[in-house]
Design a binder for these strands. Structure first.
Lengths: 214, 214
DNA sequence: CGCGACAAAATTGTCAACAAAGCAGGGGTA
DNA sequence: TACCCCTGCTTTGTTGACAATTTTGTCGCG
C-alpha cells in the first residue's frame, strides 16, 4: 500500500518535521523506521538520524529498543511553553522596536491591516496564518538569533495547541487588539510599549490556555 | 599513541559533551569521527549520532562532507545568550520564590554563606562553582522544566565565557551582593524582588561581557 | 619563485546484512 | 478458567565495507 507521495529532494528531517507540525502524524503515533524509510524514500540510517534530531527538538520521543513516537505535549506543558515565549518574545519585541526600519514598518502595518480584514471577514484560519507571520517577523526584525532559534523550536512543539486556541469562538476578537498594540509599539520605536504589549498578549494566551478543559 | 583513558560505560554523547564543556576540546577543533570512535571506544555510527545531537545543542558545528568541529561562540553571541538568560532566569527566580519550601530555603541560605566564605578566602574557582550551583538550584526549584532545559543548553554553550568572566579581578566582589539579593528575594517568597534581583544580576553580567576586549 | 593541474590520502556519507531486544499469540498446566 | 512459558515475528541497534567528497601533497610549467 503506497502512502501519499512526498516532495522529493528534500532532506528527510525537514520532511518528517513538516509532517509532524502539519498534523499528518498525530501525537503518540508510532514512527517505525522502516515505514518512514519507505514513505520518504530514504535509507534507514538517514531516518534514524532524523529521528534523533527531532527528539532533540522535542517533537519526537525515543525510548531504548522501543522506537520513536510523536511526542504529545500536555496543556500544562503548553502553558510552560507560553510562559517562556512571553519572556522571549517580549525581549524580541523590545529589540525590534529599536531596530526596525521604514520598509519593515510599512510591512508590519500592512500585516495589521490584513489581520483586521481577515477578522472582519470571519476568516479564522487566514487570521491564524497572519498571526504566525507577525510573530515570526517580529522575531526576525529583533536580530536576536538566539531567541529566534529557541522560539522557532517552541512554536513547532506547541503548534497544535496554538491552532486549537485560535479556533475558539471569540478568540480573534480578543487577540486582534493585542496584536495591533504590539505593531503600534514597535512601529513607534517605543520599546517599552512594545515589550508591554507582547507581554500582555502572551499573558492572555496563557489565561486562555488554562481555561481549556482537557 | 594512546589518548587519555575515558570512563567506560557512559553513553558517547555524554562523554563528548563533557569533554567539550570541560575544555578538553577547544573551540574550532576538528572532531574526526574515526578519532572519536577510537578515543571513546564506540562505533562510528554512535559517534556520528552523538555529533548530530551536539550540533542540535549548539556545541558543535557540522558542514556537509567537511565534518564537525567545536563551535566557537563570539562575544556578541555570548551577550545574546545572556540576554535570553536574563529573561528566562528571572522567570525561574519569580517562580522559585512562589514554590520554595523550608528545606530549600535552608539550602539556599547555606549556599549564600558558602559563597561569602569563598570570596573572603579569595577562592575564585570555588566561588565560580557555587555560582553555577546557585543558578542551577534556582532553576530546579522553579519547576519550569521548559525554561530549565533551555537554560541548561545555553549554559553549556557559554560556559567558557562565563568562566573567563568569573576570573576577572574584582568580579566576585561585584557579583556576590547580586547573588545574595537573589537568595534573599527567593527565600522571602517575594517573587517581584527575586525577579528584579536576577534581572539586575544578568544585566551586570551583560555589561561586563560587553567590556571584554576580544 | 609562484601557480595551476593532477594524484594520493584522509574523511565523511551510504548501504545492506546481521544481532539483539521487545511483543503477540498459542499451548500447556494447575 | 486463569496463568505462565515458549515460540515466532516485528522492530530497533550495531557493525563493517564501500562509494563519494574534500583536503593535502607534488610536480611541471611559465
Amino acid at each position: 500500500m503506497t502512502e501519499s507521495q512526498v516532495e522529493l529532494g528534500k532532506p528527510v528531517v525537514v520532511a518528517i518535521r513538516e509532517a509532524i507540525v502539519h498534523g499528518d502524524f498525530v501525537p503518540n503515533q508510532r514512527l517505525v523506521e522502516a515505514d518512514l524509510s519507505a514513505q520518504f524514500d530514504a535509507s534507514r540510517a538517514n531516518v534514524r538520524a532524523a529521528l534523533i534530531e527531532l527528539a532533540n527538538e522535542g517533537l519526537v520521543e525515543r525510548v531504548q529498543n522501543r522506537g520513536a513516537r510523536v511526542r504529545a505535549v500536555s496543556i500544562e506543558e503548553a502553558v510552560e511553553i507560553s510562559e517562556v515565549r512571553m519572556m522571549l518574545e517580549s525581549l524580541c519585541a523590545a529589540k525590534a522596536a529599536e531596530r526596525i526600519n521604514d520598509a519593515e514598518i510599512k510591512e508590519l502595518k500592512a500585516l495589521g491591516k490584513a489581520m483586521r480584514k481577515a477578522v472582519a471577514a470571519g476568516d479564522v484560519v487566514g487570521y491564524s496564518g497572519l498571526n504566525q507571520q507577525l510573530h515570526r517577523r517580529v522575531r526576525e526584525i529583533s536580530g536576536q538569533r538566539t531567541a529566534e532559534n529557541l522560539l522557532e523550536r517552541l512554536r513547532a512543539q506547541s503548534v497544535r495547541h496554538q491552532f486549537r486556541l485560535a479556533m475558539r469562538p471569540g478568540r480573534p476578537a480578543v487577540s486582534m487588539p493585542e496584536h495591533l498594540a504590539i505593531i503600534d509599539g514597535i512601529c513607534a520605536h517605543d520599546s517599552v510599549a512594545a515589550r508591554g504589549a507582547m507581554q500582555a498578549h502572551l499573558a492572555s494566551v496563557i489565561e486562555a490556555l488554562r481555561q481549556t478543559t482537557p
